[in-house]
């Protein structure tokens, strides 16, 4: 058994001449939870699909759970759980029928009992005969997760699992991920959300098909050399347009009511902000948040 759950190098993939992923590499140890961070269209989904055998890389090589991603995709599929970005279970089957179908595909023994247990864990025992299409977004996503881990995979690949799910359900979802991780499951989560990435052991940041940063959340933030000032208060809402184009300001965006103003050069940033420093809306420097990288890269 290799120590790495995922060990891929030089993965490239283009669609009709458009490069989706170029030269991606991931070396991910077993048992960790990794965040795969990047904006829409950055190549997260393509990379995940290449890892689980759904897409054939144009170039590159790698292994997933010790199986070659080019030639041993069947073995990978048996030991991996992959949760697609869009809900991809059968909406015209009930919860139980969906899980039952998956269990049969993996040729599981004790099928009835294991499906029953999964439904019980989901807390959907009383709704097991409801059609999956009738479930709320949060329930669908929990059902999808239950179906993906039904066959006790060693590696779980989640592609934006919490898109369109309310904050409460997101929190519960992550608690479940950590529970699974403690049981030894390796989890790679593609996500847009920095707060989710912060719950991961490490993050890999991808943009325009290229992996540009990796490490713990702290390391990635430090490597970005960004300094951020935060403006809060009543006047903050009107500041964004005023500050946006000034030298030293690379990015200004709101998070909640607070305007986060970032740049790589702290001195220049402060100089730019000096004229409005007297403004009661402006607060002090705060710690960086990596989300800023979205537009700074």
């Amino acid at each position: 058994m290799t120590a790495l759950a995922i060990d891929a190098r030089g993965l490239c993939k283009s669609f009709a001449g458009r490069v989706a992923v170029s030269n991606a590499a991931i070396q991910m140890p077993r048992g960790e939870v990794w965040g795969f961070l990047g904006p829409n269209g950055s190549g997260k989904t393509t990379t995940v699909r290449m890892l689980c055998g759904l897409l054939k890389p144009d170039a590159g090589e790698g292994a997933c759970l010790g199986h070659d991603i080019l030639t041993q995709t069947d073995a990978i599929k048996r030991e991996t759980g992959y949760m697609t970005q869009k809900f991809s279970f059968w909406e015209d089957l009930s919860i139980r029928e969906n899980l039952d179908f998956v269990a049969r595909l993996y040729d599981m023994d004790n099928r009835r009992a294991r499906v029953g247990k999964a439904i019980e864990n989901l807390g959907l025992g009383h709704r097991q005969h409801q059609l999956a299409g009738m479930l709320s977004g949060g329930c669908k996503q929990r059902m999808a997760l239950a179906a993906c881990i039904l066959h006790d995979p060693k590696l779980l690949l989640l592609d934006e699992p919490t898109a369109g799910v309310d904050p409460q359900a997101r929190r519960e979802f992550w608690e479940e991920i950590h529970r699974l991780s403690e049981q030894g499951l390796t989890v790679l989560v593609a996500t847009h959300y920095m707060d989710e990435a912060e719950r991961c052991d490490r993050i890999v940041y991808i943009a325009h098909g290229k992996m540009i940063a990796r490490g713990t959340v702290g390391e990635v933030i430090a490597a970005s050399h960004l300094v951020t000032r935060i403006a809060e208060g009543e006047g903050a809402r009107h500041l964004a347009a005023e500050i946006g184009g000034k030298p030293g300001v690379e990015h200004a965006a709101f998070f909640g009511a607070a305007l986060h103003i970032s740049g790589q050069d702290g001195g220049a940033l402060d100089a730019a902000l000096a004229p409005i420093a007297g403004n009661p809306a402006c607060g002090g420097a705060r710690r960086n948040r990596a989300l800023r990288m979205y537009s700074s890269i």
Partner: peptide, 13 residues
């Protein structure tokens, strides 16, 4: 069309 093909393909079939 419904996107369930991706799921079928991700399973050992």
């Amino acid at each position: 069309e419904r996107g369930t093909m991706e799921n079928l393909l991700a399973m050992p079939l």
